[in-house]
Simulated scan of single mutants.
Amino acid sequence: MNKQVITSEQAPSAIGPYSQAIKVGNTVYLSGQIPLDPATMEVVEGFEAQVCRVFDNLSAVAEAAGGKLQDIVKLNIFLTDLGNFATVNEIMERYFEKPYPARAAIGVAALPKGVPVEMDGIMVVG
């Protein structure tokens, strides 16, 4: 198996022992992104801005792997408050076109750095 590490300076650097993404063949496994500004490594303020930042971070890593958000075939969204589900849907429609990726929205007790949202995904390129 030939694993290629994918990195982007346009997305936050890893805050633990993991890669931003791993590419195997034409499949890319995107690590979870939280709403960190890659320039400052600080959490952005406001829920809508946080969701946008997560999508922007995922987009940067997708581009570094030779793809784009639309190439994501499976998206996992982790929320500390499922009451924000409708807001996430509305923002997601700004970033994706039909056909939308397969998706899961998972309610969790807590996320790194106390953020309310994290997303990871699987992308197919080429």
Rank of each mutant, 00 (worst) to 15 (best):
K68V: 02
L75A: 01
L111W: 12
V108S: 04
V54G: 01
Y18C: 01
D71G: 02
Q70L: 03
D120N: 15
L36G: 02
T40W: 13
G121C: 08
E90S: 10
E42Q: 15
L30Y: 11
T27A: 09
E97A: 09
P112N: 08
S13W: 12
Q70W: 10
V28K: 11
P112F: 09
G25N: 14
E48R: 13
E48D: 15
R103W: 11
N57V: 03
A104C: 05
D81Q: 07
N2H: 13
P12S: 04
G107K: 13
N76K: 14
K74G: 00
E97Q: 13
S31I: 06
P101I: 06
L111S: 08
Q20K: 11
I34W: 11
A60S: 11
N76H: 12
G16Q: 06
Y18H: 12
K98M: 12
F85R: 15
V125L: 01
A109S: 13
E93T: 13
L58D: 03
A39H: 15
A60K: 10
Q50N: 05
V54C: 03
K113P: 00
E45S: 14
F96A: 00
Q33F: 07
I106W: 06
A65V: 02
V28M: 06
P17N: 14
G67A: 00
E45D: 15
M41G: 01
E9K: 15
M92H: 05
I77S: 03
K98P: 03
M123C: 04
S59M: 06
G25R: 12
S59P: 02
K98H: 11
E63W: 06
T40A: 04
Y100R: 09
Y100F: 15
A14C: 10
M1A: 13
L30I: 14
I77P: 01
V24P: 01
V51C: 05
S59R: 13
Y18W: 14
Y100C: 00
A102M: 11
D37F: 07
G83K: 14
I77E: 01
V115D: 04
V124S: 02
P112A: 03
G67P: 03
A60V: 05
K23D: 07
L82K: 15
T80D: 04
G25V: 08
D37P: 02
F78P: 00
A14Q: 10
G32T: 11
T27K: 15
M119I: 08
T80C: 04
V43P: 05
R103K: 12
P35L: 07
V61Y: 07
F47D: 03
I6Q: 04
V108L: 03
Q50P: 03
Q4T: 14
V124L: 05
V73R: 13
G126S: 10
M123E: 04
C52R: 15
L30P: 08
V73G: 00
Y100H: 07
V54N: 04
A62W: 11
P38D: 05
M1S: 14
A102Y: 13
S13F: 14
P12Q: 04
M41E: 14
A60M: 06
V88T: 09
E97V: 07
V125Y: 02
L30F: 10
Q4D: 06
G67C: 03
A104M: 12
K74Y: 15
I72S: 02
E45I: 10
Q70N: 08
M41I: 06
V51W: 11
G16M: 03
Y95F: 13
E90P: 00
V28P: 08
A65Y: 05
F47V: 03
L69T: 07
G32N: 08
V44M: 06
